[in-house]
Amino acid sequence: MVVPVLILLGVVFVYPTSIFLLRAFTHFNPPQVAGLDNLVWFLGDETNRIILVRTFTVASMCAVLTAIVAFPYAYCMTVIGPRGRTIMLGVLLLSMFLGILLRNFAWVILLQYQGPLNDILDAIGLDRIRFLGTAPAVVMGMMHILFPFMVLPLYSVLNGIDRRLVLAAQSMGATPMRAFRQVYLPLAMPGIIAGALLVFVLALGFFITPALLGSPRQALMSQLMFLQFDLQAAFGRAGAMAIVLLIIAMVFVILSNIVQRRSRAYGDAS
């Protein structure tokens, strides 16, 4: 049973990915000629470094903000009745089934200068704001698309937390706020970390949202890779950039594994 899956993954995933990454060391456009030239080109150029830092910042903000927004949603799913939970889950999945492109265009409409959001600002006497082409617009769009990836792992952890622990803490003299902070939150941490990591890694490589809601002057890594790959046919440079992103993603996956293994809350929500 496993073998066909492995073969399929090998053919459609491992092979093309490795070829692409290998190009970083085998494919050169002048002035790069050999060896690590592509990586040196990427890290040596200041614009590239700015884009890398911007991508990292946007992805981190996405992870943190999505976690903050998703926590109440996931918590609500654990306390609401089964009917409400089905509806909340349905809304989540429905938004996932709508195409990414469609959802991004929805944000373009919402955020444009003559769009509904600006109409509201106008109506309450505030100035219209140019959202489109800014980093906040990109973050907002990405948060919307990545929201389910945060909620689902978080919900599964929160659902396993015995809520009587919070009552127990209160019976011992903790205010509801302290009971939440000292007991509930530490136990929720594995879910928050898992969800935020997923969002962060996915956000690192996001292409459509920054392309539609952002602007070339606020470009992210994926846009730069597209530029090198598609317009300049510099496969080696694009491969070098992919390697950098991959390393960042792997560093964070490993870090979070270490944190979770050290955490006493991990693997025991009972």
Binding site: R164, L167, S171, P186, L187
Partner: peptide
Amino acid sequence: RNIGVVFQHYALFPH
């Protein structure tokens, strides 16, 4: 309330 409570399944803080 300053009341001690022992819960049915102990409700010890696992962390």
